[in-house]
Design a protein around this nucleic acid. Sequence first.
RNA 1: GCGGGUGUGGUGAAAUUGGUAGACACGCUAGACUUAGGAUCUAGUGCCUAACAGCUUGAAGGUUCGAGUCCUUUCACCCGCACCA
Length: 912
Amino acid sequence: MQYDFRAIENKWQQHWKENNTYAVSNKSDKPKCYVLDMFPYPSGSGLHVGHPLGYIASDIYARYKRLKGFNVLHPMGFDAFGLPAEQYAIETGQHPADTTKQNIKRYKEQLEKIGFCYDWNREIITAEPSYYKWTQWIFSQLFSAYFNKESNKAEPIEQLILSFEKNGYTSEALCFSATDWNAYSTAEQEKILMGFRLAYRAESQVNWCEGLGTVLANDEVINGVSERGGHPVERKLMSQWFLRISAYAERLLSALDHLEYPDSLKEMQRNWIGKSVGAKINFKIDGYNEHIDVFTTRPDTIFGSSFLVLAPEHDLVAQITTAEQKETIEQYINKTAKRSERDRLADTKVVSGAFTGAYAIHPLTKNKLPIWIADYVLINYGTGAIMAVPAGDERDLRFANEYNLEIPNIFKNHDLSAGACTDKKAVLQNSDFLNDKTFEESSCLAIEKLQEQNAGQEKINYRMRDAGFSRQRYWGEPFPILTNNNGEYKLAADLPVTLPAVDKYENGPEGKGPLANLTDWMQLDGWTRETDTMPGYAGSSWYYLRYMDPTNEDAFCSKEASDYWNQVDVYVGGAEHAVGHLLYSRLWCKVLHDLDYISFDEPYKKVLNQGMIQGNSRLVYRVVGENKFVSAGLKEEHQTEPIHVDVSMCDGLVLDTTAFKTWRKDFEESEFILEDGKYICGQQTEKMSKRLYNVVNPDDIVIDYGADTFRMYEMFLGPIEDSKPWDTKGIEGVHRFLKKLWRLFYHEDNFIVTNDVPTKDELKVLHQTIQKVQQGTETFSFNTAVSQFMICVNELGKLSCNKKEILAPLIIMLSSYAPHITEELWKVLGNKSSILDESFPVLNEDYLKEDEINYPVAFNGKVKFQMTFNAEASPQSIEDVVRADTKTTEQLGDKNIKKVIVVKGRMINIVV
RNA sequence: GCGGGUGUGGUGAAAUUGGUAGACACGCUAGACUUAGGAUCUAGUGCCUAACAGCUUGAAGGUUCGAGUCCUUUCACCCGCACCA
């Protein structure tokens, strides 16, 4: 009997499907375990070998937990709304719903061939009305809630309204009495409430991407261009939906400490949230009844402040600019506004600005400080205004030098020609009551003083902005909300608000989305529907909850279900979602928790980032201007240009020149300059992508070697979180391993497994394997577990062990890694039930114990020879024997022993 | 500039957490069995050396009986953020 992996894998995949083997129940006496993958966006190009890496890891872990007696939820679904599907639709004229459906079908086929233990009964697709009904419902909850700073959580907006009706409201920015409130019109009231709702509509500077015809969230803009497509992004004032994630900044930040996320990921989130502690200081404007708020982390340097700088977009600029400076200021604003985000980021070293002509009064010295505008001050950060302290800030110093502004030196023993002083340990001077103090002591003193003067207070600032939640696109969830001419809002009564059909995807009037072309659909009983759609991250912000209760028609997820499954125990996916998806889903979880819909306020206990599998590209070198290709080793002798060729045309680095000639018409007549009769390609590690002809399809690997080999090989490649280039060559070793395993059961056509009693050696290797595999799987070091399986099978082969008592537990362990072959072998061992229902073998450490231990004997740390001792021998007795041994005296020569160190069970070191 | 991470054979990588560095594989070399092999098996394979010896975890110091592992300095690469006040 040969190991016919194709027949075996087909047979069991079908069997599992027909018998619903992987169906999971919400009712069980077993402890639960929730193992989740970041679900894929089904793109048109299908899966490549990099995609399943994380899926395989989580699948092994899920199967392992099942063997360990857990009720394991391990679902899969599809993140189906989004820009690429719509753009593809525009190009091809097909409806995005159709192409998405096709892509999902393809993905599922590919996934099914790899033998994952997903419960497909729980599959979810975010673009289906039965799903997005609840995405819309959660939006309604966000719209109907506000963040209560007192209780530090979200609460129903009705409570806020009650409080307004009873007590009015007082804050720095807003103040009204109960009588005022009750006298306001509904529209006026709504306008105020919009300042509190967790989902709100507001005019704001947004990232507008003309190329994609939509606004983008901050995390979708990379270096001033869109993450998708690389189109330029500009700042634009638009009315948009936002999520008030800033209200949760502190909770999102502090909870990180208790989460098992990779350090780098936590750092990214901390960085994104960007907490900084400092002070808000207000400067009165000379001659106006206005003041400018600045934010600073260094209130101690207040005496070094010699001018103020506002962002060009700052509200007060127009008001305070003097007549003679008006033209200069307007010119400067025009110039900066025109620059794209990308240009602005490109020349951050250039100093530019303009003087408003106005002066502010220093709150402590009462000096007059000139007020400038400059684009190095950002409207989106802090208050959009700074007090410039040239002695303490590099940029302020550059600016002061450029425009000949005063530079008070407030640091002792510091030479300002060498640059600004940013050292917090520096000692202050020329700073009145702060003289001779450092940052640590003076910061609080400065704040106290300012507070006395009513000119400032301590302030914590967060960099994170509220998240844009509108997209002017078609292929997304419609907002379940309507508005009328009075500026009132109303949530849709019936959910879902289904996405209407359109026949074109062009933007509607006034920069609105395609839905704004549907004038009939937009109107409903005197109300107008929202025509924006939700962004890609809406559906993925809560999908992990829907898997718990996927068909519930009355709730997004029943409380029983979410109480039972609770948090995701392990969440596996790419690090690219560190600040986008992961933060948004943490926010939604906290809101749903605050509103009492779920009992936990963090979605994922542990996150694991799998590395990227890169492509291993092949290059040929064309002699410039000729149809001649030179082998890589000889390319220096010619002037060449590299061209990517399809990896499938190469065996290792050797190009199949015949295949190459038929690959593309223009290569038909190619000539080759060979080395040793072969054409050797160049290679390059880069992103796996169709464009670079380096994509390896898992389907091909599965056809050639089988899913079990593929799964184990991906794990064997190295630590799961590392990125590495794909190399198909090494797969042979894993395949050989499975064939060797097979031969422990079959010799030619004979089934050779016996019921003999195992020997000590056999039990030892088995239990070593139990130990290593258990440890490796639990710590996600799957590569070491695979190694141990190989060691075990090699060892059993050497011992000619064909004993059921050894092989049965071995294949139970292996079933998480290679489910098909082990299910087959389990059956040939005479079992009727599935191997999946077995338990992970229990480690008995007694079998690991050795009677005798081989001690390396080292002299000054260098191993010279070995000696064997009884495992129970005491260190003293060992030392005595070693000292007396002739090999020792030989080594010593005329030197003396200073000390002998015996590490029990490990080694002996003799200090000479 | 700030933050996080990684440097070990020709290659992917192990290393019980301070105890024989290079397990397990790929590749390579030789051999066996084969009509054949991209099948299977056996042996070898860090470097230097004929051998003994010696050297070896990016580099340099240090702690220690003992360091890939801990400390200091430094170099290189990868990732994230970046005019953040």
